[in-house]
Design a protein around this nucleic acid. Structure first.
Length: 213
DNA sequence: CTCCAGGAGTGTA
DNA sequence: TACACTCATGGA
């Protein structure tokens, strides 16, 4: 039962790795530094990347892509700058939260702090739930964690794999082990595959199965 | 005009 | 635990 699901996940990774449609994750998620990734992780919540890009450019133009600068900028000003992403009032507060946190915990030595404590810290910040916490764990701190997002759930459902956040994450741990780069690539593959074949309006399970079986 | 995007927080049963 | 509702701009 469980092992067949693990096999599907494992084989799907091999197939997706050969797919030229999805390039390396660095190109998939362009960012100039680790803190920019943290901000991007929040801005992209329930939002298209084109809109995130506009807000990110505005932040750069105003010299705000550092924990210190974001901590001191007025909230109302930050709201206006990130407006294109939508949910801009809450996200401005969220960004203030991570800016404050990374002012006190240098982002360069995130990897050296215990993963369990880092995750608890992140979940304690406003606007950071399971998924965003894992995005930061995986792409910034460098810890092996599969990201269970909406695309992953839809795609997995096409092949009969469902469950809670933790259950699905456990399946991927059995399939991929602790290879950080694999998790990084797999998430990128799934998002690209999802955008093409499995969004809310049109979830083409047949096209998805071509990759996953 | 309608629908949705790389979620999270809050309230209700 | 399980849903429904809210937040919001911009593109198809």
């Amino acid at each position: 039962m469980g092992s067949s699901k693990v096999s599907i996940i494992k084989e799907a990774y091999e197939l997706l790795s050969d797919n030229p449609e999805v390039a390396g994750w660095e190109a998939w998620w362009p960012a100039e530094g680790p803190f920019e990734r943290v901000v991007g992780a929040i801005l992209t919540q329930q939002t298209r990347w084109e809109n995130v890009d506009k807000a990110m450019s505005a932040l750069k133009e105003n010299g705000l892509l550092s924990p210190e600068a974001l901590s001191s900028v007025p909230l109302s000003g930050l709201e206006m700058i990130i407006r294109p992403v939508g949910f801009y009032r809450q996200k401005a507060v969220y960004i203030k939260g991570v800016a404050e946190y990374f002012s006190q915990h240098p982002i360069e030595d995130l990897h050296s702090m215990p993963p369990s404590r880092l995750r608890e810290d992140l979940l304690g910040l406003p606007g950071i739930g399971n998924e965003t916490a894992d995005v930061i764990m995986l792409y910034v701190a460098g810890h092996p964690r599969f990201i269970v997002d909406a695309y992953a759930r839809r795609i997995l459902e096409c092949v009969g794999i469902t469950g809670s956040y933790d259950e699905i994450q456990a399946l991927f741990k059995m399939a991929l082990g602790d290879d950080v780069e694999k998790y990084r690539r797999y998430h990128a593959y799934i998002v690209e595959l999802g955008k093409r074949h499995c969004n809310k309006k049109r979830c083409d399970c047949c096209a998805v199965k071509k990759y996953l079986e």
